[in-house]
Design a binder for these strands. Structure first.
Length: 812
RNA sequence: GGGGUCGUAGCCCAACGGCAGAGGCACGUGUCUUAGGAGCACGCCAGUGUGGGUUCGACUCCCACCGACCCCA
């Protein structure tokens, strides 16, 4: 069946978007796959959903762009290449071909002209071009930053190569090492990334918006400058609680920050160095865990609290992060749990300055956070928390000891990777000129094909080992220079791919602004929740930055977002090690693409996880067989007849089901829509078995229903739908037939069932004309035998009438 | 600790604040059949996690608790 229909679809060019079409357009994008092997069950679910959305839009008469590409740079290709001693290209492009073939055999309605791979020089040329535009704007810059370092292998490790603090390959403890790294200044867009979410409200899943908000983590508060005894410049800290300033009893700087080393007094130097070494072995997650035993070291210095002149000791500790805020905090143990935990370990004073009515933290060991009245705070005593926050922040500013401020949890995006299989950073380092951009007309900076080592000694970037490639002349002064040897995070590649789809083969520009005016932004973006934070945030950042450079006329890339759930097996996610892996190709071999797609969609709403053990591809197979038999039994009956001549009773039922299925599909309730299609199947089966096709009116109505079924089925099970369409005596393709329409006159009923409740409980029901008046209905309800029996001698207090469907008699 | 999502038959899931059941799986009975693991027909099964509240009326709205998953700390 697959082999029969694929060539037909190709020949009819059903799924090609028309850039100059007068129809309204729809841009529907499934998050592009990573070519890790063949497609798996998760892909089948995601793309079944996306395809239903795309095909529905197409059937409804939109000009649809439904593209496909591959996110084809990344570490797994390098690992596979190392293991098999091959070029990462071979592994990558072989997998892409396999996946492309699988997509076709699944019947996904991609416009294959959009096909792109982020690892093609034709693509990454433009990734580099965008990088340079960001570089020109100061949105890409270099600074020293800590990376994971394996001292044994002498190599940099990605976060995912660090398993529980150990090197995944040799098992030794991973430490942090400072390296100069490339960053994107995404923090410059923190406010807009946050504020523009207002327009996504209701269109993106609530939880994704929440996750993004949390990730950006805007908090309002104040900067406070503390003078440090024996140190020239004051140290600035950020606090969300300036109202607790009088409760600051000590001061903490991040142990691994340069500031800590700077502040450390000479007699504490040894203890400090030992502590820092210990800290560098820990992961950030561990460091931030609340409730962990607090550690730190006294730096032998004092800070001066600007509001009361108090001398407070300065500590270095690991629960403060060097790159969050200013890397230093004022510690208020009474009102911050981690400060309190630390104070208790080091026997530091705890002073309550906001009376929240909760028990004293000194005794309970529980810091208080609530609202209350200030105490022990000099002139601010008696103020409420909010009042005090404003007053103290303002006074600090007045005295030049600080200012109101906003900070973010979001940090700049570290994009450089010491890897081979990624997009080279188009920068040349020149002794005389510094960082020099590779001129646009020399792009792409292509990866060297030979003369490099994937894992060079000494933890250098693989590209550094390609000495011939590295050595260049400076584009600016012509002197000797070297190429930047890092490659970009693959999230860079995927932050703009949806801009290139409409002009995927255009070699003159990254994207076509003219075409994007027609297609962008993406109407429907379908993908896993795993990308809910980083990918979506990065893509939003790119679009905003490109908008600010006047390349784009929109500021949000994805108008609507659907996160499909995962396909799990027996309650947990599939994995080889759990032994619960279900192979897509096995399922396809057993049940066929249509049944697998149907099973995915019928299992529940798209957002929910699907436990493959709970669902039944066999059920889908059986239903498809019923549809096939139905179409076959209808055959040419009623062919060419005017639907209007069809049996009105049957038509009424058919149109009602079509109407419902349409509404449900529109809301992506595919499971419910498919249930309606199943009902339609049963309805038509019964009609045929009752001899409907013997009369012209019946045959006409059955044909109308059968054709509607085939058309609607085509968005879920496209091959079976074509087959049914053909059995019904029609020319291919069912896709060209479009979505069935309904006649409003057939949807209005002339009588409905009225339910009669007594005290909210169902007691009687009867058929009434739709136009019945409230008075009439009340009469009939009160006259009901069942109602009178239930009421007994109780008087009637009120009668709620909702004509024509309901009457509720409320006894006194 | 804060936030989000969600708890409906043995299972997966439906139900504008108005008849708790649309659809499917599993199970059972019958029927067709040389046969059935196919088809068809019929049947079986819950009062919606718990406790309050709002309402004429609550699976649906509000509060608390229990449990599951996710995010942030």
């Amino acid at each position: 069946m697959v082999d029969k229909w694929l060539p037909v679809w190709d020949r009819l060019r059903l799924f090609e978007a028309r850039d100059d079409d007068s129809r309204e357009r729809r841009y529907i994008v499934d998050m592009f796959p990573y070519p890790s092997g063949d497609l798996h069950m998760g892909h089948a679910e995601a793309y079944s959903i996306g395809d239903a959305v795309a095909r529905f839009a197409l059937m409804r008469g939109y000009d649809v762009l439904h593209p496909i590409g591959w996110d084809s740079f990344g570490l797994p290709a390098e690992n596979a290449a190392l293991k098999r001693e091959m070029d990462p290209r071979e592994w990558t492009y072989a997998n892409i071909d396999t996946q492309a073939e699988s997509f076709k055999r699944l019947g996904i309605s991609f416009d294959w002209r959009t096909r792109l791979h982020t690892s093609d020089p034709e693509y990454y040329r433009w990734t580099q071009w965008i990088f340079l535009r960001l570089f020109e704007r100061g949105l890409a810059y270099r600074k020293a930053a800590p990376v994971n370092w394996c001292p044994n292998d002498q190599t940099v490790l990605a976060n995912e190569q660090v398993i529980a603090g150990k090197c995944e390959r040799c098992g030794s403890d991973v430490t942090k090492k400072n390296l100069t790294q490339w960053f994107f200044r995404i923090t410059a867009y923190a406010d807009r990334l946050l504020d523009d979410m207002a327009q996504l409200e209701g269109c993106w899943p609530e939880r994704v918006l929440t996750m993004q908000r949390n990730w950006i983590g805007r908090s309002a508060g104040a900067y406070v400058d503390f003078r440090i005894e024996g140190h020239e410049t004051p140290v600035r800290v950020f606090t969300t609680r300036p109202d607790t300033l009088f409760g600051a009893t000590f001061f903490v700087v991040a142990a691994d920050s340069p500031l800590a080393a700077e502040l450390c007094s000479d007699d504490k130097r040894d203890a400090f160095n030992a502590y820092v070494e210990q800290v560098q072995r820990m992961s950030e997650v561990d460091r931030l865990t609340e409730g962990r035993h607090k550690t730190g070291v006294d730096l032998g210095r004092h800070a001066i609290n600007p509001v009361n002149g108090e001398r407070i000791p300065v500590y270095a500790a690991d629960y403060v992060l060097a790159d969050y805020g200013t890397g230093a905090i004022m510690a208020v143990p009474a009102h911050d749990q981690r400060d309190l935990d630390f104070a208790r370990v080091f026997a530091l004073p705890v002073r309550m300055v906001v009376d929240t009515g909760e028990p004293d933290p000194n005794e309970t060991g529980i810091a208080t956070h609530g609202d209350g009245v200030l105490v022990n705070s000099g002139p601010y005593d008696g103020m409420r928390k909010d009042e005090a926050i404003a007053a103290i922040a303002a006074d600090l500013q007045g005295d030049a000891h600080g200012e109101p401020a906003t900070t973010y949890r979001l940090r700049d995006w570290l994009l450089s990777r010491q890897r081979y299989w990624g997009c080279p950073i188009p920068i040349v380092h020149c002794g005389a000129c510094g960082e020099v951009a590779v001129p646009d007309d020399q792009l792409p900076v292509e990866l060297p094909v030979r003369g490099y080592e994937l894992r060079p000694e000494g933890g250098r970037s693989p590209l550094e080992s390609a000495t011939e490639w590295v050595t260049v002349t400076c584009p600016s002064c012509g002197g000797p220079a070297t190429r930047d040897t890092d490659t970009m995070d693959t999230f860079v590649d995927s932050s703009w791919y949806f801009l290139r789809f409409p002009s995927a083969s255009d070699h003159s520009q990254p994207f076509d602004a003219q075409l994007l005016r027609r297609w962008a932004p993406v109407d429907e973006y379908v993908g896993g929740v795993t990308h809910a934070i980083l990918h979506l945030l990065y893509a939003r950042f790119f679009v905003k930055a490109l908008h600010d450079m006047d390349y784009l006329d929109f500021t949000e890339p994805f108008t609507r977002l659907t996160n499909q759930g995962m396909v799990i097996m027996n309650g947990s996610s599939m994995s080889k090690s759990r032994g619960n892996l279900v192979k897509l190709q096995d399922e396809l071999a057993s049940y066929g693409p249509d049944a697998v797609r149907l099973t995915m969609l019928f299992a529940g709403p798209p957002e929910e996880d699907i436990d493959w053990a709970d669902v039944s591809p066999t059920g889908a197979v059986k239903w498809l067989a019923r549809v096939w038999r139905l179409a076959s039994d209808i055959g040419r009956a009623g062919v060419g007849s005017d639907p209007a001549t069809g049996d009105p009773e049957l038509r009424r039922s058919v149109h009602k089901l079509v109407h419902d299925a349409t509404a449900q599909t529109d809301h992506k309730r595919f499971n419910v829509a498919i249930a309606r299609l199943m009902e339609l199947t049963s309805l038509l089966r019964k009609a045929i078995d009752a001899g409907a096709t013997d009369a012209a009116a019946g045959a006409s109505a059955v044909r109308e229903g059968g054709e509607a079924l085939a058309r609607m089925l085509s968005i879920f099970a496209p091959f079976a739908a074509e087959e049914a369409w053909e059995l019904l005596g029609n020319e291919p393709s069912v896709v060209s037939a479009g979505w069935p329409t309904t006649e409003p006159s057939l949807l209005v009923e002339d009588s409905v069932t009225c339910i009669v409740q007594v005290a909210g409980k169902l007691r009687d029901k009867f058929e009434v004309p739709v136009g019945i008046t409230e008075d009439e209905l009340r009469e009939r309800a009160l006259a009901s035998e069942a109602v009178r029996r239930t009421l007994g001698d109780r008087p009637v207090r009120t009668v709620i009438v909702r004509a024509p469907r309901l009457v509720n008699v409320v006894p006194g």
